[in-house]
């Protein structure tokens, strides 16, 4: 009941995040790209994990924002070319995966938005 039957988008996002966090050490690079990728990678894997739960599926939108950052970061932080390609590729992949809602088979009394919508019953 917690996770949907297909959580492949979340699973791939988690793998992307782990790769991002580990790649500076595996490929041996430093600079701004190292810091950005380690930070964004850890948080991307975190939000990807939380978004597995159906009632927290909206958390995937945070990973969309992280994906946008990965696409624009090379221009803001002046990455070398090979780091820029990697960052943009992972960013576009993260954005695409964040757009996949996946199966939500349970209902949650109107969900989190019911808390600030007017009305007596949240459904």
């Amino acid at each position: 009941m917690e996770g949907g039957t297909d959580v492949w988008a979340s699973a791939l996002t988690i793998l992307l995040g782990i790769w991002l966090a580990a790649s500076p050490d595996i490929m041996g690079y430093g600079g701004h790209a190292r810091v950005s990728n380690q930070l964004v990678g850890v948080w991307m894997a975190t939000f990807g994990t939380i978004a597995i739960s159906e009632c927290m599926r909206a958390v995937r939108w945070v990973n969309l924002l992280l994906g946008v950052w990965l696409v624009v970061a090379p221009f803001i932080l002046s990455y070398p070319d090979e780091r820029a390609c990697g960052s943009i590729a992972v960013g576009l992949a993260a954005i695409s995966l964040a757009l996949v809602r996946g199966t939500v088979s349970e209902r949650f009394g109107g969900g989190w938005t019911s808390l600030w919508r007017p009305g007596v019953d949240g459904h």
């Binding site: 994990t49 739960s53 009632c55 949650f108 019911s114 808390l115």
Partner: peptide
């Protein structure tokens, strides 16, 4: 600790909806 977050939050949501009612 990250794995616990999502599965714990559904119960919190149900209690918050209860308090709203």
């Amino acid at each position: 600790s990250i794995t616990m977050i999502g599965p714990a939050m559904d119960e919190v949501l149900a209690s918050l909806q209860f308090l709203k009612r």
